[in-house]
Design a protein around this nucleic acid. Structure first.
Length: 295
RNA sequence: GCCGGGUUAGCUCAUUGGCAGAGCAGUUGACUGAAAAUCAACGUGUACGCAGUUCGAUUCUGCGACCCGGCA
């Protein structure tokens, strides 16, 4: 068992590809512990719409209230701690989820700029400026970052500016990695578009039958609906319906379509990564794990 | 059967007497503290068919087909 003590498995793939299921089975088979890497399942009460699986023990699910702030940084801390804890317990950490940024922050040891997002005053000032002004500002301070970020992507331009201004160091100089002290096997679940799309569509219908509308109604009654947590596929569309902006039918269609394009974004994120071993059958994942643990 | 309205991109629909364009869908890409977020790129299709008017018709006229209303 000691062989496992610095090894970690990651399972990636688009939403509805079965990551959680695979992780669950691998955990059973190899004495593993599943750590979720999902930026939405962290919220308590967001159950049906995020497709939470509560049938087994999984870390980093239901860890905060919808009004609490949570970022990659928090995720990185929590997940890394768990990984180390499992190493010392001689169990195998299995990280599974669809949030690429979260996964990579842990797996590749991203060094996140030590500047908190909620530097409210500066942020409020920046948010009032136009895209153009912001971008010109960034060009002056950090040309390398400006080159990489689209001028119209206000969110990312602001963050780059914020980090550069508050740390007095260009944002682009932070973009470093600290090679983690563990060996990783990243398993990617291979799927084809058509299959995953129809799986998603069926799942959305099921979510509605399971009471998604009621879940959202309850949540917006309890919390302010402009929280970042509600900017989630499956929730924002139902909110539109509850406010009369769309019919339920339209809202369901929107959930399906938005999930489809989410799948595309996820695939773009993982596609170019040469470390990922893509397989389409669970048995192959098991074989890969076997080999990996023997090494 | 009669009277209207319609037939244009996978879908919903614009538009124009000089060989057509939006939204959605779809596809591609970026991504280091909101990431299920945020942002960028990609539009040739027999303009229902046939005939006529015209230098030129998808646009006007006629006939036909199909669809949707209303009246019988």
């Amino acid at each position: 068992m000691s062989k496992k003590s610095n090894k970690i498995i990651a399972i990636v793939g688009p939403t509805a590809s079965g990551k959680t299921e695979w992780a669950k089975k691998l955990a059973l088979k190899f004495n593993g512990k599943v750590i979720s890497a999902d930026s939405r399942q962290i919220y308590r009460g967001f159950d049906i719409g995020t497709g939470k699986d509560k049938s087994f023990r999984q870390d980093l699910i239901d860890i905060i209230e919808p009004f609490e702030k949570f970022t990659v940084w928090d995720y990185q801390q929590l997940a890394s701690n768990l990984v180390n804890q499992y190493f010392s317990m001689k169990s195998l950490p299995i990280i599974a989820g669809g949030t690429g940024l979260y996964l990579y922050a842990v797996l590749y040891g991203y060094i996140l700029p030590g500047v908190k997002k909620e530097s409210d005053e500066l942020r409020k000032k920046l948010e009032k400026l136009s895209e153009n002004t912001l971008y010109e500002k960034l060009k002056k301070i950090d040309l390398a970052a400006a080159d990489k970020i689209d001028p119209k992507n206000k969110r990312r331009v602001i963050r780059a500016l914020e980090v550069s201004i508050l740390s007095k160091k260009p944002f682009s100089e932070f973009q470093k990695k600290l090679k983690p002290k563990f060996k990783t096997l990243i398993i990617g679940i291979k799927t084809d578009r058509e299959t995953i799309y129809s799986k998603i569509d069926a799942r959305v219908e099921q979510m509605v039958k399971d009471g998604l509308v009621e879940e959202v109604r309850g949540l917006i009654k309890k919390y302010q609906s402009d929280l970042p947590a509600f900017n989630t596929i499956g929730y924002k569309e139902i909110i539109d319906y509850l406010r009369g902006k769309t019919t339920l039918k339209e809202s369901i269609l929107n959930i399906k379509n938005n999930t489809h394009s989410y799948v595309r974004r996820q695939e773009t994120w993982f596609k170019k990564n040469k470390d990922i071993k893509w397989v389409s059958r669970y048995e192959d994942a098991e074989k890969l794990t076997h080999k990996f643990l023997k090494k």
